[in-house]
């Protein structure tokens, strides 16, 4: 019988080709399925239908009314706080934000916990302005800490003015 000596041991060669095939398949799969999603957030609004509207006189502080008037093309024509015209564009929303702060005194004021903001927008106004309006009323972002300073949490909508 012939014994194989140490020096004659067959060298086992690993087959790299199939592994590389699979690895490339995996790589292509992950590249193709990759979806870049922008980070999203949201604004909570609670709008129960059955809750009876509380009379204005029962509440210590009246609602803040914000009117958003649209142009024919759906862009913002005028932002109105109560009866005061605040203009258009980003400056108007910044002004609204400052006025809201003046009304509540200081952020987190417990006395203003029950204040609601009613947003009354024209039917054809682009949705982006409502989001800006909600944002201006709910608070601001502290530039130093990057944390949200809350103003008013309760936001509601006036009934829609459906065109005739």
């Amino acid at each position: 019988m012939k014994f194989r000596r140490k020096g004659e041991q067959a060298k086992i060669e690993s087959q790299m080709a199939p592994m590389i095939d699979v690895v490339f398949q995996l790589l292509i799969f992950f590249i193709l399925t990759l979806k870049i999603i922008e980070p999203e957030g949201d604004f909570n609004v609670n709008l129960p239908i059955s809750a009876p509207a509380q009379a204005e006189t029962d509440r210590p502080l009246p609602d803040i009314k914000v009117r958003l008037i649209a142009n024919d093309d759906g862009n913002l024509g005028q932002l109105v706080l109560g009866r005061r015209k605040l203009g258009t564009g980003d400056q108007a929303f910044e002004l609204l934000n400052r006025e809201i702060l003046k009304m509540i005194g200081r952020p987190g004021n417990p006395l203003t916990k029950d204040i609601e903001v009613e947003l009354d927008a024209d039917y054809n106004l682009h949705y982006r302005y409502i989001v800006k309006g909600i944002s201006a009323c709910t608070g601001r972002l502290d530039p130093r800490t990057k944390k949200i300073v809350p103003y008013i949490e309760k936001i509601k909508f006036a009934p829609p003015h459906r065109p005739e």
Binding site: E38, P39, E40, G41, D42, F43, N44, P48, I49, I134
Partner: peptide, 14 residues
């Protein structure tokens, strides 16, 4: 609301 949903959340991009 007519379908008895009450909680709403409006999404926006950060």
């Amino acid at each position: 609301q007519e379908a008895e949903f009450e909680k709403f959340s409006l999404a926006a991009t950060q």
